[in-house]
């Protein structure tokens, strides 16, 4: 599997094409972190989560993927998924039409389709079973007055509106059993559900903060099975992030995910991407 290692290294080395971005009113400050779970380290598996984002002015796009535990090439699958999905959204935004509340849903669905296709093509190219690259995917686009998210499998997106309300935009999607989340990559087509705020087009909505995360911290941050946000988790998290500068946000997220308290409650890989509107 030398080929797949090379592809993975290339993806991880790639410098994500950033838009020129100045931190100004109506733009986002962002912090992200993916860490290997203690259980993965114990079993000699590295981090099989992947996360990424880009921003352009007031638009923000985030992707989070969690390589399936049953997938031998899980780390490669999740990295490809994040990379492909963000590239597809960027391509749409730059060369098709700027992402707006009107086209966000179709842009997300198209990006998910592109991701499925790329995962299948990569698996075929490697001579691997398609499920060897399977992963979950959360894909999100946000601006100050709307947020859309597509999700396949577990993990979740929680947002805070300008009035301080915490809302689960997406909740974990599970199969019949807790360990049977639907995955992206095994089949060439699939249903993609897109959730949005405001729920009805035309309603007034003001966004303040966003957290997108993989299943590694799901039980810490959500009340399952309902999937409601756990306020003692998000309220201090967002309060603090909102008054930090971007580099300090990143440090805080890293320290938090790495803390013994968190590791005492989860041994899975954990990815958290947070964004705050200034």
């Amino acid at each position: 599997m030398g080929d797949s290692m090379n592809i993975l290294k290339k993806i991880r080395r790639a410098v994500w094409p950033q838009f020129p971005s100045t931190i100004e009113s109506g733009s986002w400050k962002i912090a992200d972190c993916s860490l290997a779970g203690t259980g993965h380290l114990r079993r000699g598996r590295g981090c099989e989560d992947a996360g990424g984002w880009f921003r352009d002015g007031s638009l923000l796009c985030i992707a989070v993927a969690d390589g399936a535990g049953s997938a031998p090439q899980a780390a490669l699958g999740s990295s490809i998924a994040v990379h492909t999905a963000l590239l597809a959204l960027r391509e749409h935004h730059m060369n098709v039409s700027p992402i707006s509340a009107q086209n966000a849903k179709s842009a997300l669905v198209a990006a998910c389709r592109q991701t499925v296709s790329t995962l299948c093509i990569t698996a075929d190219g490697l001579g691997a079973d398609r499920c060897h690259l399977a992963c979950t995917l959360i894909l999100l686009v946000a601006s100050p007055n709307f947020v859309f998210a597509a999700q396949i499998g577990d993990g979740a997106v929680v947002v805070k509106d300008a009035n301080g309300n915490l809302i689960s935009l997406t909740t974990p999607i599970n199969g019949e059993f807790a360990n049977e989340a639907p995955l992206i990559g095994c089949a060439p087509s699939m249903d993609v559900q897109v959730r949005s705020l405001p729920r009805k087009p035309g309603d007034t909505f003001r966004l303040k903060s966003i957290a997108a995360f993989s299943d590694g911290i799901m039980r810490l941050a959500l009340k399952l099975p309902q999937g409601e946000p756990h306020p003692p988790f998000f309220t201090p998290l967002f309060d603090r992030l909102e008054c930090l500068a971007e580099p300090d946000m990143k440090k805080m997220i890293q320290n938090f995910l790495n803390s013994p308290r968190v590791n005492a409650r989860t041994d899975d890989d954990k990815t958290l991407i947070t964004a705050v509107l200034q």
């Binding site: 799901m218 039980r219 941050a221 959500l222 399952l224 756990h230 309060d239 320290n255 308290r261 409650r265």
Partner: peptide, 24 residues
């Protein structure tokens, strides 16, 4: 809501992690 003024006053220990009980 609690107002947080400085880094010194915050520790990650303030973030509650008990959203869902661990499976038993």
């Amino acid at each position: 809501m609690k107002k947080i003024n400085s880094t010194a006053q915050f520790s990650e220990a303030e973030i509650g992690l008990e959203g869902t009980p661990d499976p038993r």
